[in-house]
Design a protein around this nucleic acid. Structure first.
Lengths: 117, 117
DNA sequence: CTCTTATATGAATATATGTTCATATGTTCA
DNA sequence: TGAACATATGAACATATATTCATATAAGAG
């Protein structure tokens, strides 16, 4: 499905050309958006935020957030797919922890942004 | 609607209590998630990424992204609500630019995360 | 082996959200 | 004033997604 071009006449062709050349590859932009999409859910943000402090098993997270085990497990799957968390098994229990150095910084910058009232 | 607590017995009460005390207020977590939700859309990421390079009018952005003026305008509204972009009017034309120092850093950290293959 | 328990997962459902379409608003220019 | 145009916006629609429910998997205990 091809979308036709905006019909405006004030298009600044030079600016568009310049910006087009400077922007990252489209695929990378999709990947970045997907990363933020993962961070853009309150349940997942809570999980990440909890894991800043300590590794936790699924049950602990469910209890902490007052959510069902299933819901937590589904979200951990998403976080795992985004390579944001890792896990280790100890018998039946699975302990999750953060798998990234950037997330804490990203989170803190996010807090900074909303903090400046 | 109250969700009942996870029935697991291996809950590490001490860990949960500790983490609960260390976590930011719930409202702030919702706000952070909302911020990342705004960043978690490829159209909006593209707009932000374009504005890193230059201020642009709505028509320019629409032409650059090959999207309808309406769709771009709707997304600019979301970005504006999140205080990520600002605008200045010059006659009929509205020029948008970034309204935050953190976004560039957040974006770059996001790129770093997906970059480490 | 069988029961219990911790976790994972598939399907269904309800809700959120991005784009389109039609139209409104506001500005310039004749 | 009226036409042309850049932008904004509301409603509708289609799609994405988070949670629930039921159930599967896997590991330890008896």
């Amino acid at each position: 499905m091809e979308i036709e071009r905006c019909s405006c006449t004030v298009v600044h062709e030079d600016v568009i050309e310049k910006v087009k050349n400077l922007m990252p590859e489209e695929e990378r932009l999709y990947d970045v958006a997907d990363l933020f999409k993962v961070l853009g859910d309150s349940t997942r943000i809570k999980i990440i935020c909890a894991l800043f402090e300590s590794e936790m098993c699924v049950c602990d997270i469910a209890a902490l957030l007052n959510m069902s085990q299933s819901a937590v497990s589904h979200q951990l799957r998403v976080l795992k797919a985004a390579r944001l968390v890792k896990f280790r098994k100890e018998g039946k229990v699975v302990y999750y922890s953060l798998d990234d150095e950037h997330v804490k910084m990203i989170f803190d910058l996010g807090l900074s942004h909303i903090g400046e009232e």
